[in-house]
Every structure is written in C-alpha cells, then in structure tokens.
Design a protein around this nucleic acid. Structure first.
Lengths: 365, 365
DNA sequence: ATGAAAGCGCTAACAG
DNA sequence: CTGTTAGCGCTTTCAT
C-alpha cells in the first residue's frame, strides 16, 4: 500500500511530476519515444480506439507513456472533443448537513464514470448563483446538477431547453419541465401527521419552511391536506413560516407561534434544522419535549439521533438522491434527450424520542 | 432580483445559452461583429490587456460580446496560458462535519480570486487518492490543497518539490517540508487537560485518534506532556487509540478502556466524533456525563452544542483554516516559491455541559 | 494499421 | 493601437 501510494503506473510520482510540470511530456514525446506518429499514439492510448492499432504498437506506446510519466492534458482533449467530463453542482451551502451526503452520492456516481464535479455554494444569493453559473458555463460543463433552485428560477429552465442537461435535486421549479430527483414530500408529511395523530395529537402546529422553495411549499400544502384527511382541524394560527431552512429562523417562527397563544400539543417542522430552532425556543420557555410538546422533524440529517432528545423525523435517502441525480445527468449527457422525468424517492418515519403519546395533563395555554 | 436572475450581462440567459451551446459563439464571432481582428477582441475582453486597445474599440467589442452572449472558453484559454484557475482539494470524507467549514473557507477565498476548486474524497483509501490525484494532474490544477494527508504520505512531498504548489490542511506529513495550515494541537490539548485539572480531575483517560495521522499523534503526545507538566500521573492503561476518527471506532476504544477496569473520572477525546463514541458507550453502561465521567472533545464541530449533554470541547477556527490555506496556495501560485511555512491557528476552550467538577462520591470501578 | 493534415478557441510575440 | 502569425496538446477525418 505504502509503496503503491508513491506510484502512478508504476512510475515514481516524483519522476512523473518533474516531467509533467517541468518540461511537460506530451503525446508527441510519447509517440517519438515509441517511434510512431502522434495520432497512432493517441489511438493506442485511448481504450476506445485502441483496437485500431497493432497490438505490439499498443504495447510500445503504453510502455513509452509509462516510462515518460505521460499525463494526457484534459484541457486539450476537451477543447478538441467538446466534452469536458465535468459536471457543475449548485447548492445553497455545503455547511448545511443535508448536502454532504447528496454531494457524495453525486460525486461517487459521477466519479465512477470518470466525471469530475465542481461545486458552487450560492448562499441563496442570486448574484452569486449567476456568477457561479457563468464560470461553469465557461468551463463547458457537460451537465448541471442543481440543488439550490427556487420555485421562480426560470433561468434554469432556459438553460435546460438550450440543450445543456440540467437535473434538479431535492427541489423543483414551478414552470419548468426539468428532470428532478427528490424525496416524496407529500408522503413524508403524511407519515409525520399520521404518526402524531396515532399518538393522540389533534392540535398540531406546523413550522413551515420558506414558501418560495418548492419543498417549503409542498410540505406546507401536504400538511394541510393530511390534516384534513385525518379529520383534524387546521387552525391557520397554528401555522408559521420561517424565512429560511435554518435554526435561527426556525426559532423566530416558533416564538411567533408561541406568542399567538393558541394551544397545541405537537409541531411538524418542515426540516430538522427548523426542529432544532423549536427545541431551542421550547427549552428557553421551560417546555419539555416531548412531555409538553412533541416535535417531529424532516430529513433525518446526520446527528439528528444525537440531539436532546433524539429527534423523531422523516428519513430521506440523501445519498441515493445524489446517486439518482448523477445517473440521470449521465443519461442526459449520453442521449441529449430529456423526458422531464422526475424521480421521487420514498421517505420513512424514524421514531425517536421527541414525540410521545399526548399527555393527559393539561396542555399549555 | 428575479429579473436579474435570468440575465447575464443583461442578455437573456436563453439567448445566451442557445448561442453558446448550439453554435458556440467564439472570439472570432465577436471580433467579426465588432469589425476587428480576433486578437484585438481578445485584448479588449481581458481586463489586463484592455489598456492596449482604443477605448472606442473596447466598447464595440464588449458590446458585441454582450449581444452575442459570448462566453470565453476556459479550456482554450487554459491550454494556451498554461493556467487553469483550478485548485484541487483532497479530503477524507465530505460527510465528516469537520470538513464543510474548511471547504467553504477554501472555496470562498479561492472563488474571490476567480479560482474554482475540485474536490476529491479519498475515503482514506490510497488507491482512490492516487486515482483522484491523477485526474487532478490531468486537469492541470494550479495547486493542491490536501486535508487527507497521512504521516507517511511521501508522494505529496514529491509533488510539492516538483513545483506544484501543495498546501497541507489540518494535518502534516512526517518528513515533508510542505507548507501547512492547522490548529495548534499542543495548545489545544493543554486547554483540555488544564480545564479538567482545574475541575479537580486527576485520573484522566485519553481516547486517542489514529496514530498514523499527524493530529492523532500530536494530540496523544501533547496529552502525555501536559499531564506531566500538570503533575498528573500518566497511566498507560488509561490510554486507548481508535482506528479512525469516527463514532464507531471511538466507541470501540472506549469499551476497551472501560474493560481495563482502571479507575478514571474524565476523558480527553482526540476529536468530537470520538467523544460521541464515548457518550454512546457510557450511556449504554448507565454512566452519566458529566456526573460520573467528564468528557471533553476536540474541534467544536457543528452541532456539538446540541448533543446531550452539550459537549465541552476545543474550538478550532475551521473556516479560517480553509481561508488561510487558500491564501497560501494563492501565494505559492503567484510566486512559485515555497518557504515551508506552517501556520498554526490558536484554539480556544468552549465550556459546555459535558465536564464538571469532580464528584465527591465514589468514582466507578 | 499507420501517417498526414487540419483545427478545437484562445493568447502572445512580433510587425507594422 | 491593431493585424499577422503561430501554436498550446490533442483527436479525427482522410489517405495510403
């Protein structure tokens, strides 16, 4: 293992790099050393065209490449072939624990197909997003995977229609027929509402996400719809929205909810981070979870099982979402044919300690 | 905002992309439209060489580029200039909450200088690391930022000596004079040991990290050294090592520690994830933190304040580590001159609820 | 099975 | 200040 770590193709990295960086060994050098024309060397080096070349020649070329420590220049190749084997991925913020598993899913899948991904954190800032899209376009990415879409993001649709493969992840846009991969929000919220209902809760509040993001809207709408189908009253005063999927906005929304003074025994949060905001405010006011209020989150983000109390939540197969998104991108790249497909993965309920049967004692005012 | 989101340089994205992708607008098209020679258009388009061109011509070229939705081809430019404005970053696993803040620090800083970073997850697998390094080299990255180094990683030194700027992050290698940016492990462990000592703890255990990683070794050595300078006995039976910086290995190590049956009242974990492993095993055995055992972590990773109990830990300025690493890389790119600099950022103690004054009751057996 | 020739899109001397 | 020329390193017809 250790010896191997210093080698490329059996050549010491040092040698290889010296050559690569100092004088840069090119295809011509390899060809010369092998005593063939550069074009022959090219054919021998590429698995696809290798069959066109005499077996012995192939061996000679490969050997020459190995000895010289030849590294094919991806820029030159991309310029020629008009394919960069690069995919751009847009996301709001890598620091949000939701995203690393998705990114890993994307990178692992794309990496296995020899693609490289370049990441862009938009921080929910349109200017930044445009700038990042700009560099990605300049770099001639073969596809775009977008996890930062807002409902109104029409430019993505335009990009997609222009022929560049665009796959939406986790979120969709309103009027676009862009292929997307996400969890099934309606089903997930159903799991949450029915779980609480089965525990005897009837006065259920919703701490919703931003409504300009598809998941925020979908989870809110699903909340209403499932409450109704469970025969539970939907009190608009028990519904609040956060500005953003983060703890602080979640805390703000929860505070607002509490200050409305309407009685409830459980909260469906649109996201785990928002649920943490609920935790914080509830704890501040001396209300216990789940004794006084049950809280259910959404996403089953990493470490949600380590919270106090461990968070009952809806599990979304994040890694798999990344995998499927990457697969879709690969298909689109290969076929240049979009079917407006949308993949929805099935969520599951993860029961932990933040929800419990409604207490018989008096609920808070 | 919304209108802006659909525009590049004031040109509808759709138009732009159609042109870009369908027929691909090149410099020649722009030049033609502006009635100048391509090289003049090139000069006008690049801020640096713009001064060489007549002001009116510049305006005409810029206008033509805008109208046509011209996007400079980064591949062609890179091929010509031998500079890709790309930096490769190697890390063990993006899913480890330690890394996203570092990555953001790197990307924000590099992004501001118009560089793009490509990430590679090595999963602590040498073959994978070599493969990733290979693609990065093929893509002619301008520099490498490495957060996945093991102590024995000699190939990185070779790369560095070959002229490619390499910056180590968070970890260093044994025999390499590679510039690095990391937290000061010795100072950090000092904070931890002295904190516990000040709370009256004398029998302190160490759940150490992998010893083939510089931070694992440094924290272990620092632990010994600080225990001694605090006048506390170092019992080798109170020191265990984990195979890897993760919860599960941390739990394994803690179990081993417990099974040795030697009495202790506090644990210094080499990392927050390991501390979580401690939490898990301790809870399993009915031992309370901090009442029975105080636990202190290392890193102050995201959500360590939400654990049960909130984890006392050593804060490392992760984002800033990323920033400094990127700055160093930028300097190296500019100057091609390495000084083997190593930046150590100062850690701080974050007192939360997992450590407390030693209880007067009997410690466990 | 291999060589010759051309060109991807851009920049950078060098002329003028 | 602008045009000419050449070529970065590679792939890909087209010949042979």
């Amino acid at each position: 293992m250790v010896r191997k770590s210093g080698l490329f193709w059996g050549v010491p990295l040092a040698t290889m790099v010296c050559m690569t960086l100092a004088h840069t060994v090119t295809l011509r050098d390899v060809a010369e050393k092998a005593g063939v024309h550069p074009s022959t060397a090219s054919r021998a080096l590429n698995a696809r065209s290798r069959t066109l070349v005499n077996d012995q020649t192939v061996v000679r070329v490969l050997e020459a490449a190995r000895v010289l420590g030849y590294r094919p220049n991806a820029l030159a190749r991309g310029l020629k072939t008009n394919q960069t084997f690069t995919v751009g991925m847009l996301l709001p913020d890598l620091t949000n624990p939701l995203f690393p598993p998705i990114v890993r899913g994307v990178e692992d899948t794309l990496g296995a197909a020899d693609y490289t991904v370049i990441l862009g954190n938009t921080d929910n800032d349109t200017d930044k997003e445009v700038a990042i899209l700009g560099t990605m376009l300049n770099r001639r990415v073969d596809a775009l995977i977008v996890a930062s879409a807002r409902r109104s993001a029409s430019h993505l649709a335009e990009l997609g229609e222009s022929g560049l493969p665009v796959v939406l992840v986790n979120r969709s846009t309103d009027n676009a027929r862009l292929p997307s991969v996400s969890g099934d929000d309606h089903a997930g919220i159903g799991l949450a509402v029915r779980h609480l209902a089965s525990l005897g809760h009837r006065k259920i509040a919703h701490v919703g996400g931003p409504q300009d993001i598809s998941t925020g809207l979908a989870r809110y709408q699903s909340f209403i719809s499932w409450m109704q189908s469970e025969g539970l009253e939907v009190d608009p005063r028990l519904i609040v929205f956060s500005e953003w999927f983060h703890e602080a906005p979640g805390a703000v929304a929860t505070t607002e909810l509490l200050e409305r003074g309407v009685e409830f025994t459980a909260i469906v949060a649109a996201n785990d981070l928002l649920a943490i905001g609920c935790y914080d405010v509830l704890a501040e006011r001396g209300m216990r979870v789940p004794d006084d209020v049950s809280v259910i989150g959404y996403n089953d983000m990493p470490f949600s099982d380590k919270l106090n109390p461990p968070l009952t939540t809806i599990h979304i197969p994040h890694y798999m979402i990344g995998v499927r998104a990457a697969e879709l991108a690969l298909e689109l790249i290969a076929e240049r044919d979009v079917g407006g497909q949308s993949v929805r993965l099935t969520p599951t309920l993860v029961e932990r300690a933040s929800t419990s049967r409604i207490s018989t004692s008096l609920p808070h005012a």
